[in-house]
Design a protein around this nucleic acid. Structure first.
Lengths: 105, 105
DNA sequence: TCTATTGTTCGATAATCATAGAACATTAAA
DNA sequence: TTTAATGTTCTATGATTATCGAACAATAGA
């Protein structure tokens, strides 16, 4: 099993985080993860191909926004809330609060 | 003089704002505008061609992040702080605070 | 051991983007 | 009316991206 790359908290780049969250699909993923907690890829209902979901998960993971762990044949995704809060206090909250106020849901 | 498009406050999209701010050059522009107030394009020192600055200014303007007005041969750029605060409370502050804590300066 | 499930990776494609230089438009100044 | 200054727009280019389907890998279960 190939180990998945996750940046250290200190190495998380602001521009990468903002870029990762600038895509509506990825924003939706992050929103659902915060709402429901850790979830398998397939449990996040999205109207796109699974290979595309995988691509977006990777973008979020490599930016440091989510963590991915393996459990059986599943990949469980979770938000790196504490890490993001430590690195960029208030940022994730402001973004998700904005998302929830919006008609982009 | 061609009127420049600026989205209405209500039409500002979160994903567009995040995308606009996900580029280090554009983040720098926005940071300097908040620090120094309204500025002409040329007064913002950047190691890129002026046509590129113009491109980035347009991206920020069309996303609703900055306002551009004409004054003589100059184009004066300013942050749409109140509009952004009204649309996405706390967002700009969280992003710029994160930027200032970072070594991306 | 076979089969089904879950998700990643590969290959391809169409679209978008950051960048720069050249040409152009507008205005101020000489 | 020239000339200089300030930016925008046009054109081109190389890079990145979002998307999909097909092939692959890993694991659980029968």
């Amino acid at each position: 099993m190939k180990p998945l790359f996750h940046p250290d908290t200190a190495d998380i780049q602001l521009s990468s985080v903002l870029y990762a969250l600038s895509d509506p699909v990825r924003l939706t993923i992050v929103h659902k993860l915060r709402q429901n907690g850790e979830r398998a890829c397939g449990d996040i209902e999205l109207p796109i191909a699974k290979s595309t979901v995988s691509h977006h998960s990777r973008t979020l993971r490599e930016a440091g926004v989510i963590r991915t762990r393996t459990h059986g044949t599943h990949r469980l995704l979770s938000l790196r809330e504490e890490d993001l809060e430590a690195r960029f206090p208030g940022l994730l909250n402001a973004i998700l609060a904005s998302y929830e106020e919006t008609d982009e849901l």
